[in-house]
């Protein structure tokens, strides 16, 4: 029983981290109908920078997100202005191909600069755990979860309580309508892309502690994150959180009771099973597509 509770607790902690990582993806899709395939590469990039900072200065990897978050905000903003904005208005598949190419470029650059070896930031508390009754919660996971929950709360606040957030949500629902009332689609796009990238600042820092990584890790991460948003329904933040929790649980339960090797596969099986029953995902809205 303690075994089971332990697995559930771990699954939820991991789910929280996944939720944060997927939130940027779903936000960007919501506003621009762009699937940012480079989001996984953003995470690995941040993990690499975090590892480097930790290695050089000894700064705690999770605290390092204070540096990496604004860095990614700027990086996202620039990426939007220099790349994404150029293909606005062409077919959605072009944006997938563009961001996919961008991900490869990041991978290639990391390969050449940081080398092709597994890395992991291991701060002093890495091996320690909190004990609650019979179950033990690794400190790294708990801190990661806390940081993720904090960032998600801020994100929710920004989207729902500030003018900027309202502009972003307005542009999500009706770009031309939003433009008519003074919300610039290009401006909101750049902002949403920057915020979406900034979530990778914290997400990547957490990643560097919890998982070993190397430049090509981004494939694994992006397919995991994309799985989460498809499961939750593209563009929905509550959907991403729910999807992340479900998949975090599925993964830890398989790892506990099955084998570690198959746990990733269970992840994909769950996604296919959900799509079989609900093609638009758990929280996916059916939009009015009949406009004619």
């Amino acid at each position: 029983m303690a075994h089971f509770v332990q697995a559930i607790a771990l699954g939820l902690l991991i789910g929280g981290v996944y939720a944060l990582m997927a939130s940027g993806l779903t936000l960007i899709f919501g506003v621009m109908r762009i699937i940012n395939v480079a989001q996984g590469a953003f995470l690995v990039l941040v993990a690499m920078v975090t590892w480097w900072l930790w290695n050089r200065t000894g700064i705690d990897p999770i605290v390092a997100s204070v540096v990496t978050t604004p860095m990614m905000f700027g990086f996202g903003w620039l990426s939007y202005r220099l790349l994404i904005a150029r293909i606005r208005g062409s077919s959605p598949s072009m944006s997938v191909l563009l961001t996919f190419g961008f991900a490869l470029v990041i991978e290639g650059v990391l390969n050449l600069t940081a080398g092709n070896k597994f890395k992991s930031a291991a701060p002093s508390y890495f091996e320690e755990s909190f004990r609650v009754g019979a179950i033990s919660l690794p400190k790294a996971q708990v801190f990661g979860f806390a940081a993720a929950a904090g960032v998600l709360a801020v994100l929710y606040y920004v989207l729902h309580r500030t003018w900027t957030g309202r502009a972003i949500r307005a542009a999500t629902q009706n770009p031309s309508g939003a433009a008519l009332v003074g919300v610039s689609a290009a401006g909101t796009g750049a902002l949403a892309f920057a915020i979406g990238s900034a979530t990778a600042g914290v997400g990547g820092s957490i990643l560097s502690v919890l998982y070993p990584f190397f430049p090509a890790s981004h494939y694994e991460w992006i397919s995991r994150l994309l799985g989460i948003v498809v499961l939750g329904g593209l563009g929905s933040l509550p959907g991403a959180v729910t999807g992340a929790a479900i998949l975090g649980l599925a993964e830890t339960l398989t790892a506990t009771y099955g084998s570690l090797g198959w746990s990733t596969l269970v992840f994909y099986l769950v996604i296919m099973a959900v799509l079989l029953v609900r093609p638009q995902g758990l929280f996916g809205a059916r939009l009015r597509e009949d406009a004619a």
Partner: peptide, 20 residues
Amino acid sequence: VVLRTRGHAFVIITIAMLLA
């Protein structure tokens, strides 16, 4: 499974299935 609806699920699933 994934081609019953329109839109973006397909491209996502194709990457996932390759890794699977």
